[in-house]
């Protein structure tokens, strides 16, 4: 019975590893980041495009909520794609790192060591995929937004400029994150 339970919990872990679902901690991190990155361009629209918060309150809220939601999804998609690639890349290095730790411990058995390597590899891959995904999507989103707002749509009215530049850059970032490369 206990053996069955441990197998099922192992399977759960494996499933969690390969699923697109993220942990609550990760979700909070992604949402916080997405909200901050969506809110920062408001400064440009307020100061440079002269869109007052009092007059464009609704536009700003709609734009920020939509871009936060889709940026969050983009982070998750990209993390999912990157995590397994990074895990493969780091496999050797992590096993060497763990082997060094276990080198002095003569009593440790192989299973413990393998479990430790797997957990550490997962941890490293998760961390690197999360940070890279945040970095890449943030940079991509802000560059798209600046190009659209200050070059492509610069002669349009502030409302059109804001809604289209935020909407299009969010869509571009989200679509690119769904690629399977």
């Amino acid at each position: 019975m206990s053996n069955q339970r441990s197998i099922s919990s192992d399977e759960d872990l494996l499933l969690q590893d390969f699923s697109r679902n993220v942990t609550t901690k990760s979700w909070v991190l992604f949402s916080g980041n997405a909200a901050v990155v969506s809110a920062i361009p408001l400064w440009l629209f307020w100061r440079i495009h002269h869109m007052d918060f009092s007059s464009y309150f609704i536009h700003f809220i709609i734009g920020t909520v939509i871009s936060t939601y889709f940026l969050n999804l983009a982070y998750q998609n990209m993390k999912f794609i990157l995590k397994h690639k990074i895990a493969q890349k780091r496999e050797d290095a992590v096993s060497r790192e763990i082997s060094k730790i276990f080198a002095n411990d003569k009593n440790a058995n192989k299973k413990d060591k393998d479990d430790r390597i797997l957990a550490r590899k997962n941890e490293v891959a998760d961390f690197e995929a999360t940070t890279y995904s945040i970095f890449y999507n943030n940079a991509f989103y802000l560059v798209c937004l600046i190009i659209l707002s200050f070059f492509v749509l610069k002669n349009f009215s502030p409302t059109v400029n804001y809604l289209f530049s935020v909407g299009l850059s969010t869509a571009v970032v989200f679509l690119f994150s769904t690629g399977q490369k």
Partner: peptide, 13 residues
């Protein structure tokens, strides 16, 4: 304002 959002995750990665 924007650079910490890009530089900080990049630095960690």
């Amino acid at each position: 304002m924007a650079s910490p959002c890009i530089i900080f995750p990049f630095f960690l990665w």
